[in-house]
């Protein structure tokens, strides 16, 4: 299993700069690890209006189970991508992502 190197802040910076589109091979490995989390607890955005804002939630054990909001609210998708990236970084490396 690929493990994220918590010293590679350059990868986090690359993602913050450009969350969508072409990435370096190493950043793609980081994203693959983060985005293939199990269904149970997987992050999901809930959009109640036509174009936002976005509430962050987590799936339950199965698709039939309700989504549990985390309390985070985002005004843009890019903002949501960055905050979730940081949360996953913390969970997978055990370290805060100190870029801000």
């Amino acid at each position: 299993m690929y493990e994220i190197d918590p010293t590679r802040l350059d990868l986090a910076e690359e993602f913050r700069r450009k969350p969508y589109g072409r990435h370096s091979a190493e950043l793609q490995r980081v994203l693959n690890r983060m985005r293939t989390e199990p269904f149970d607890g997987h992050y999901v955005l809930l959009r109640d209006g036509r174009f936002g804002p976005y509430r962050l939630g987590r799936f339950g054990a199965t698709p039939a189970d309700p989504i549990t909001p985390t309390g985070h609210v985002f005004q843009s998708l890019r903002e949501a991508e960055w905050i979730v990236f940081k949360m996953r970084w913390k969970r997978l490396t055990g370290q805060d992502l100190a870029l801000d």
Partner: peptide, 27 residues
């Protein structure tokens, strides 16, 4: 429903999953 019932959707889409009012209703 497949866009949010498959745990591999996010890595395929390359973006966080997003459920608008319609998807939340259908869920």
């Amino acid at each position: 429903h497949h866009g949010y019932e498959d745990s591999l959707s996010e890595v395929c889409y390359g973006a966080l999953l997003e459920l608008g009012p319609t998807e939340q209703f259908l869920k």
